[in-house]
Simulated assay, not measured.
Amino acid sequence: MLIDGAGPALLPVPASDAARRRILVDALRPDDAPAAQDQAPEDLARPADLAPLGDDTALVVATSGSTGTPKGAMLSASALNASAVATEERLAGPGRWLLALPAHHIAGLQVVLRSLLAGAEPHVLDVSAGFDPLSLPGAVRSLEAAAGDRPLYTSLIPGQLRKVLNHSSASPAAALARFHTVLLGGAATEPELLDRAAAAGIHVVRTYGSSETAGGCVYDGVPLAGTEVEIDDDSRVWLGGPTVAAGYRNAPGHEAFSRPGWFRTEDAGSFADDGGLRILGRLDTAVSVGGLTIVPQVVEAALMAHPAISEAVVVGVPDARLGHRLAAAIVPAPSVSVPPPAELSSWVRERLGRHSEPATYDVMAELPVLANGKADRKEIERRVR
């Protein structure tokens, strides 16, 4: 079993995407078998060498990304077990889980692993065609019938929670309120969404982590048992502890694992007054505008604090004078008129200063997303140029 180290290492792949499966198998082979003989896409070079799998390696999990060769985090059975046990300890003990995320991504995998640890299969929602909030009431009835006195848990991304709260029927939100805890991760969550969830009686715990840390390892800013957090002089977040991967299968010696037992993230962070971790944004998406470095997620949070904005993604696009300028893709809140650009710029300027104002605003019915539910920033850059 995965959490006790028995059996060979596994590579989770999407069941419904043959092209993606071939890419992952060719790049991240979880054994020493040769790569597939059919020609790989030209932009996906097979790795010249692969890092050896440890005796304890249980999973090789593809990191997120829409183009190029994905990196494969090598997770040991002990790392997976440490994550699942620490989660049970932080929550209310073993429970029954609803799987509402793709099972080949780390957040979905962790629902499966936590269920294994609890000795119960998760209730699985079919999200291959998208997440339907109306599937929640029936799922909760099934879970409650089987759970006995055990608590109910699930993991969602902010977009799913937003769909629940924006639904014309109140039944999805009422169903979600029956869960002891809804773990929410994968992207930044605006305070307004958390306030709406609390008002609906939904207990949300924000999680922070990645494939390289066996999923979320910091809950509501507080590390799980065994996890350590450091912030270096460049404001970069480092995560250490028993849940950290052994490295990348197809990138031996990668600098992200230059410190044994630690993972160097691409996130900027700080410690709040109460000592909790606060993520400011992604260092690898930072934009230089006229020589000033802007973290897009900070601007996005300011925009989503506006009552008329449901979602926002800010990207940098080339500019002849400044090098780059900020462009915002926004999704309006339901049944609300989109404010004029001048009003939105004034809103941002009052909170962050003139240098953080987007130069343009593109209104979209919905944001393009990657398979893992995160915003597809490259596609947004293409649309807003």
Score class of each variant (00 low, 15 high):
5 G>R: 14
10 L>C: 10
15 A>K: 11
19 A>I: 01
26 D>L: 04
29 R>D: 05
31 D>C: 13
32 D>K: 10
35 A>R: 01
52 P>G: 13
53 L>A: 08
55 D>P: 08
59 L>A: 09
81 N>C: 13
84 A>D: 06
89 E>L: 02
96 R>H: 12
102 P>A: 14
103 A>P: 01
105 H>Y: 08
105 H>S: 12
111 V>A: 14
112 V>S: 12
112 V>H: 05
116 L>K: 09
118 A>H: 07
122 P>F: 01
123 H>C: 12
126 D>L: 11
128 S>A: 14
128 S>L: 14
129 A>R: 15
134 L>M: 12
138 G>N: 09
145 A>P: 15
145 A>C: 11
150 R>T: 06
154 T>Y: 08
165 L>N: 06
166 N>H: 04
167 H>W: 03
178 R>F: 03
184 L>M: 07
189 T>A: 04
191 P>I: 04
193 L>Y: 05
197 A>W: 00
197 A>E: 07
199 A>F: 10
200 A>F: 02
201 G>C: 12
201 G>E: 11
204 V>K: 03
220 D>R: 03
224 L>Y: 04
225 A>W: 02
236 R>A: 06
238 W>C: 02
244 V>E: 15
245 A>G: 15
245 A>K: 09
250 N>R: 12
252 P>G: 14
255 E>N: 06
256 A>C: 12
256 A>N: 15
260 P>Y: 08
262 W>T: 15
264 R>T: 06
267 D>V: 05
271 F>L: 13
280 L>R: 13
281 G>A: 13
283 L>I: 11
284 D>C: 07
297 Q>K: 05
299 V>N: 00
299 V>P: 00
301 A>T: 13
302 A>F: 03
313 V>G: 01
314 V>D: 00
324 H>G: 02
327 A>Y: 01
345 S>V: 12
345 S>Y: 08
358 P>T: 10
360 T>H: 08
360 T>S: 15
360 T>C: 05
364 M>Q: 11
370 L>D: 10
376 D>R: 02
377 R>G: 14
378 K>I: 13
379 E>D: 12
379 E>H: 04
379 E>T: 10
